[in-house]
Write a protein that binds this DNA or RNA. Structure first.
Length: 596
RNA sequence: GCGCCUGUAGCUCAGAGGAUAGAGCAACCGCCUUCUAAGCGGUGGGUCGUAGGUUCGAUUCCUAUCAGGCGCGCCA
């Protein structure tokens, strides 16, 4: 169903197309299968009822003819006109069933597309500063970015996943000062009052101290005693273990030493973050250091480029860029009046660096608190000589804790921050990933830790893995009885299933319809940056598999031809499920072990 | 004050201008001599925040409004 179809009908005088514009229409999958596999609304776009029904009838006749005469259209079973002029197209059952073998043949690359046609895409996500652990809030970008990257790579884009970390500037100094304060406690030196600003664990009260020692979530406790199990205390200890010479520096209060110790602490924290990411199967190709922008002089080059392009001016002793010329709310400072470059200046340099590396598209996955980035960075893209569309910012909404049915914001002050590695340890990486990916990035996420850690029945992600494991179990069983499901499936005659009971055939066709949706789901995700559709899709395939499983025994099929054909369906579904799970960064297990 | 996100079943959420608005969980009723019951079948549950508008057709687009969240630094 294309414009050429319409043109042909126009030429025959069956329908009248508008002279100047190509008609817009949609090909969609109806909600109910009784309306066909595909439905086209072009007739209603061209005219109002009842005229639209006449047009639909003409198109329907034409398509029926095509299906009968043209081999390339022989998948068309029938075409019907319904309602105000819907053209409903039904696919031949046998054709659907036969696709199973193509899916099996595609294997791990099933669903691969070429809509990206090799375009280079840089996806930056997480990018949490190495001054503390990634928690369940700022970790959300990890799942979105990683899954989106996986899907875009499958869709034919050349994808680089990147983590930008800020190892530069005042916060490292602050981290160093905090670290020194803890070191003094460790070394038994008088540490004095705790600095107002910086990175600290919560205190514990004396009677909570023992309890806290046994409880790794001890940062929920507050009191007056230093928490020796607190994260920053342990970081300070690790800095001392690794670099005993800094014990001398800790006695010194000079700022330079804060920077040195801050750098050591930050690299330890960065290692922890990397480990957390690894444990959650969040993969990065590049970890990009902000400090390196200064070392390579790109910080200056970026500013120079903007200056040469005429977007830089001076005001009140500071150097500004005219982002407001490109739709930003206001202009932004690049160099402060004290001579320091701003964080924004680094952003310019970093974008400059990315474009220089040849990326066609820069995608930033950022939290809602970075909303202000959109206008400014799109302006930067244009000032650097690229289109506003070449830079895309995905804003994910905040993650709150769901405590007793109430949404509670995580905060350092409240001491209720839950780290991502804790969550991964409690519920496992696979469930964590699925849980996060069930929601649109635009939606708020209320994280119910209690529920997430509860019995796994409530986690639909496991039902998807179970579907995969179920199939693997059947294949295992087949192998035990000396048969090879794969080779049986390879020479199966899928038409054998057409004699199944209506209920069986229905479930078989439904399974194949779901299997065949993978490509369009991936396309939608890649084009609209909506990776959450993948979890819904995986659940749909799993549900179809479970129904099929209940209705259609394969090993015990009385007819050997039916058995073979069902093996083909099982292998196809297994291929699809494994692919979906892998794109989600999850395991596709061959066995499920009950955690009871 | 201005801008962005959200408001859909008891709960958490899907829903690409289409036909009778869906899923998971929770509740209730069935189904294991069967390839794993982490499953399947069934029942109940909705003024799609509210009010207008555009359209043959609006949960979807526009305007207004209410509610919740976030953002509007020479911080990072």
């Amino acid at each position: 169903m294309t414009l050429t179809t319409l043109a042909a009908l126009h030429d025959r005088g069956d329908i009248v197309l508008p002279e100047d514009t190509a008609p817009e229409f949609d090909i969609e999958r109806p909600q109910h299968i009784k309306f066909g596999d595909y439905s086209v609304n072009v007739a209603m776009k061209l005219a109002r009822p009842p005229k639209s029904r006449e047009i639909a009838a003409k198109i329907s006749e034409y398509l029926t003819e095509l299906g009968r005469l043209v081999p390339a259209y022989d998948f068309i079973d029938k075409v019907e006109v319904a309602g105000p002029g819907f053209i409903n197209i039904y696919i031949k059952p046998e054709w659907l069933l036969r696709q199973s073998q193509a899916i099996i043949a595609a294997g791990d690359s099933v669903g691969a597309l070429n809509i990206g046609s090799g375009q280079c895409v840089n996806i930056e996500f997480v990018s949490a500063n190495p001054t503390g652990m990634v928690h369940i809030g700022n970790g959300r970008g990890g799942f979105i970015g990683d899954t989106l990257g996986n899907v875009m790579a499958a869709a034919g884009y050349s994808v680089i996943k990147e983590y930008y970390f800020n190892d530069y500037g005042q916060q490292i100094t602050l981290l160093g000062r905090s670290c020194v304060w803890y070191m003094k406690h460790i070394l038994g030196i008088d540490a004095g009052e705790r600095p107002n600003e910086g990175y600290f664990d919560h205190f514990v009260t004396p009677n909570e101290e023992e309890e806290a020692a046994a409880d790794e979530q001890s940062n929920t406790a507050t009191g007056s005693v230093i928490n020796k199990n607190g994260y920053y205390y342990t970081v300070a200890q690790r800095v001392l273990d690794r670099s005993p010479e800094v014990a001398d520096l800790a006695r010194n209060t000079d700022v330079e030493y804060f920077d040195i110790i801050g750098a050591k602490a930050s690299s330890i924290i960065m290692e922890d973050i990397k480990k957390t990411m690894l444990d959650l199967n969040i993969h990065f190709d590049v970890f990009f250091s902000q400090a390196s922008l200064d070392e390579t002089n790109e910080l200056q080059k970026g500013i120079e480029l903007l200056r040469n392009n005429g977007y830089v001016f001076e005001k009140e002793g500071a150097v500004w860029m005219e982002t407001s010329k490109f739709g930003d709310d206001k202009d932004r400072v690049l160099i402060k009046s004290n001579g320091d470059t701003t964080y924004v200046a680094s952003d310019v340099a970093y974008a400059y660096n990315k474009y220089k590396r040849g990326f066609d598209k820069l995608i930033y996955v950022l939290g809602a608190d970075h909303y202000g980035y959109i206008g400014r960075m799109k302006a930067v893209a244009q000032m650097l000589g690229h289109s506003a569309d070449s830079l895309e910012i995905l804003i994910y909404q905040q993650v709150n804790l769901d405590v007793g049915g109430k949404s509670v914001r995580m905060s350092k002050r409240a001491g209720n921050i839950v780290n991502l590695d804790e969550l991964a340890r409690l519920v496992g990486a696979d469930v964590t990933r699925f849980f996060y990916m069930m929601r649109d990035h635009n939606s708020h996420l209320d994280f119910n830790l209690e529920l997430a850690t509860k019995e796994s029945d409530e986690n639909p992600g496991l039902s998807v893995q179970y579907a995969h494991a179920r199939i693997a179990g059947i294949l295992r069983k087949a192998a035990e009885t000396g048969s090879d499901a794969a080779s049986e499936a390879a020479d199966a005659n899928m038409a054998a299933l057409l004699n199944d009971t209506p209920a069986q055939l229905e479930s078989e066709l439904e399974l194949m319809r779901e299997n065949l949706r993978l490509e369009e789901v991936l396309e939608r995700i890649a084009l609209h940056y909506e990776p959450h559709h993948l979890t819904k899709y995986a659940m749909d395939v799993a549900a179809a598999l479970h129904v099929f499983y209940d209705r259609c025994p394969a090993l015990r099929a009385e007819n050997p031809e039916v058995r073979k054909a069902r093996f083909a369906l099982l292998l196809a579904a297994k291929t699809i499920l494994a692919r979906a799970l892998h794109l989600l960064g999850m395991n596709a297990p061959d066995r499920m072990e009950r955690a009871e």
